[in-house]
Design a protein around this nucleic acid. Sequence first.
DNA 1: CGATATACTTCGTGATACGATGTATATCGT
DNA 2: ACGATATACATCGTATCACGAAGTATATCG
Lengths: 102, 102
Amino acid sequence: MDIQLKRGLLDVCVLAAIKNEESYGYKIIKDVKPYVELSESTLYTILKRLETAEMLTVRSAEHEGRLRKYYSITDAGLGRIDEFKEDWKEIESIYQFVAREC
Amino acid sequence: MDIQLKRGLLDVCVLAAIKNEESYGYKIIKDVKPYVELSESTLYTILKRLETAEMLTVRSAEHEGRLRKYYSITDAGLGRIDEFKEDWKEIESIYQFVAREC
DNA sequence: CGATATACTTCGTGATACGATGTATATCGT
DNA sequence: ACGATATACATCGTATCACGAAGTATATCG
């Protein structure tokens, strides 16, 4: 998919991936993969950004000798998803405008 | 609407605005306005980019003493719109993923 | 005659997706 | 026993891009 099109979709995809239960980097990538391709460098950039924006919280825990950082969504994160749903109406009308035959 | 979300949508909106008949900057902004807000500086950047990518062609003509640059879509431009329609299927599935309740 | 609309242009800035690269451990197959 | 692969997180540099600000210039309307 077009890179530019992914912008604005990725943040919200990551939030959706931790919406129901906390998750960690590698799992998020796998969960999101069926919908969008997401590289590790991109994901960790996004996670840091969302953390700064207080849309998620982090806790570190050891899992089988390896460190894992578990991410949980906050109310602000849930609010971000709601905003996206609002924006979706506009996006759909844009699609109609672009795809219309005449 | 979220700026990041607009990326990838704007190019295609501009192409859609000249899809059926040639148009010019000021008119494109007005035609697209009901769907997305688009500033002049953004539009002219986009027009230049699309021209470089050979998705549109330009001709200059005088109109009531003022210069106007008329833009027409090319086959590559029409192809770009088709690509967007393809991407749309993915975008919709992303929306389902993000907006699902569970 | 000033405000507003039309019309195009350039510059600088901030946001951001991604490839490349690096570190480190666990598991699986042969 | 050992190499490949999967798991897991991190950093850096680059290219792309939307936008506000500011500028130039003419036409129209009240």
